[in-house]
Design a protein around this nucleic acid. Structure first.
Lengths: 180, 180
DNA sequence: CTAAATTATGAGTCACCACTCATCTTGTCA
DNA sequence: TGACAAGATGAGTGGTGACTCATAATTTAG
C-alpha cells in the first residue's frame, strides 16, 4: 500500500529526470529518445527506466503535472473572474502550447485521455459557466466545443508553423465565434 | 529532358503503389512502413523504392495529387459560387480529413509546404474573395487566417478523437467566427 | 564504521524500418 | 520467336530506439 521512502539520491534523480523530460519533449516532441532525456538529466539510461519502467509512464507523469498546472491556472482565473476569464485562459494555453509540444500531447488521444482531458474539460466548464453568467459568450456554446477548439488551435499552432502574428489573429477569429 | 516511356507492368505497379500508399497512410498515418505499402500493393519492397527512391518522394507524389484534387474542388465551388462556397469547402475538407490522415500531412510544415500550402492558399483566397463580394464573410478576415483555421480544424479532428457530432458543431462554431 | 539493501551504470538485446543490390523475370521490338 | 534492356524480387545492411541486466557505487540503519 505505502511505498518505502526513496533514497536521497533517488529522489534527486527522479526530479532531474522529470525536468529533463519536460525540456526535451517540449522542444523536440514526444518522439525524442529516452536516451536524450537521460543525457539532459545527467543520468544513465538505466536510471530513467528504473524510475519510469516505460516511456509511456514518463509521459504520463509529465501529463499529470501539466494538467494540474493548467487546471490550477483555470481555477485562479475563474476566481478573479469577470466574464473574460475563459478567453484569457484559451489564449494563454495556445500561447504556451506554441512553445511546448507536450501540451498537444495532453490534448491528443494517445495519452490516457479519459481522466486527463476530462479534468481539463471540467476547468473549461467552470470558465464557460462564468462567461455565461456574465453574458460574454454566445448562447448554446457547449464546453466540449470549446475544448475541441482549444485542442485544434494548439495542434494548428504547433504543427503548421504559425508566426506569432498569425497565431494571435487566428485565435482572435476563433474566439470571435464564441462571442454573442 | 523527356523520360523514356515506362513499360506496361511498371506503369501498372506505379499506380498500384500510389493507391496502396494512399490507403495505408490515410489509415495509419505517414509513419506506416514502406513495407506495408508494398504488401498492400501486392509488390516487393524493392519495386516501391525503384519508383520512389525515398519514402519522402512517395509522400510528395501523394501530396501533389491530393493538393490538386482539393484545388480542383475549390475551383468548382467558386464557379457555382454563391457566397457560401468558402464555408462549404471548409466543411468538406475537414470532413474528408477526419477519415484520411494524409490531409493533415499536407497542411503541416514537414512537407514542402512552400509550394503546396501556397497553392491551397490560393484556392482559399479565391473563395474568400467570392465570399467578400457576396458579403457572407466578416470584414477584415484574411486568407492566411482561414487557411490556419482550416489546418487547425483538420489537425484537431484527427488528433483528438472528435465524434462526428462534435466535429460538426465545432466546425460550425469556427465558421461562425468568420461571418458578419 | 560496517554490512545489507537500494540505486546507478552502460554495454548489450531485440525489434523495426528505410534503403540496397545481385539475381531472376518480363515486356518489347526487330 | 529470340535477345536484350527494363523492371521485379527479397534477403541483407545499417541505424535507431525502447528496454534489460550483471556489476559497481551509494545510502542508511544499527
Amino acid at each position: 500500500m505505502s511505498d518505502p521512502p526513496l533514497r536521497a539520491d533517488a529522489r534527486r534523480n527522479r526530479a532531474r529526470i522529470l525536468a529533463a523530460a519536460a525540456e526535451v519533449f517540449d522542444a523536440h516532441g514526444t518522439s525524442a529518445s529516452t536516451e536524450e532525456v537521460a543525457r539532459t538529466a545527467g543520468v544513465a539510461i538505466g536510471t530513467v527506466f528504473r524510475h519510469f519502467p516505460t516511456k509511456a509512464d514518463l509521459l504520463t507523469a509529465l501529463m499529470k503535472d501539466l494538467q494540474g498546472r493548467l487546471a490550477a491556472r483555470a481555477a485562479a482565473l475563474a476566481e478573479e473572474g469577470d466574464g473574460t476569464a475563459l478567453f484569457t485562459f484559451f489564449a494563454e494555453v495556445v500561447e504556451y502550447a506554441a512553445g511546448a509540444r507536450t501540451v498537444v500531447h495532453l490534448l491528443a488521444v494517445d495519452v490516457g485521455v479519459d481522466r486527463q482531458v476530462a479534468a481539463l474539460g471540467t476547468a473549461v466548464e467552470v470558465l464557460l459557466a462564468r462567461a455565461g453568467e456574465a453574458g460574454t459568450v454566445r448562447a448554446g456554446v457547449r464546453a466540449d466545443e470549446v475544448t475541441a477548439l482549444l485542442a485544434a488551435a494548439c495542434h494548428g499552432a504547433l504543427a503548421a508553423g504559425w508566426t506569432p502574428d498569425l497565431r494571435h489573429r487566428t485565435v482572435a477569429r476563433l474566439l470571435d465565434g464564441l462571442r454573442p
